[in-house]
Design a binder for these strands. Structure first.
Lengths: 96, 96
DNA sequence: CGTACGTTTCAAGCATGGCTGATTCAACGG
DNA sequence: CCGTTGAATCAGCCATGCTTGAAACGTACG
């Protein structure tokens, strides 16, 4: 079901509403990290972490840049703002 | 998987990360509504709406009160606050 | 009382999406 | 080059949770 009308907001929230992805975003909210560093803070198989990072990339919440053999992940600049606005009632709360 | 550490936050976000439930919360953020009124704004089968309302009730985002034949639903007082605090990075953003 | 209405509950079906193991790719080092 | 390391991709399994139809419940009204 999709019900149209707030698909983007819901998609964004679905991206955060996962234990692994939540932990990744929380870790990145502090500072940029390479995948290997993320693996220390988010104890799941490399496979799985990569899968969740892909989901986050596709929603635009996170951006990746290669640095030699490593890949750094960082929160997108507008990530936290977009999340805040995706919550129901946020339009009213922020007095739009 | 649960990864512990932010289970409550994730559970709350999972509750909002659904098209129907998002629409319900958005509608209730304006004013209290009975189920019949909700059905006009959230076009899904009564069955289904009831199921989603139950989910929202169980997370404490919404409270129900019977008024004669009807049942009124309202946002819990702390619903929007809890949602805001459930977002990753919110601890930092609010300068805790 | 019996019927109608609003709402919930139940017992299924079904699909999406998370998880896993194995494979592939890209970059560096010897 | 060749092996190693960091990371992504692929195919497939499996479970959770959304969806649906039918039935049950509570309340009002005739």
């Amino acid at each position: 079901m999709t019900l149209g009308g707030a698909d983007d907001e819901v998609a964004l929230l679905q991206a955060v509403a996962d234990s692994v992805r939540w932990a990744v975003l929380e870790a990145l909210s502090d500072r940029q990290l390479c995948v290997c560093d993320l693996q220390e803070r988010v104890p799941v198989a490399g496979n799985l972490l990569s899968y969740h990072l892909k989901v986050l990339r596709e929603t635009g919440l996170v951006v990746a840049t290669r640095r030699g053999r490593w890949i750094d992940y960082a929160l997108a600049d507008d990530a936290l703002a977009r999340l805040g606005q995706a919550l129901p009632g946020s339009r009213r709360a922020v007095r739009s």
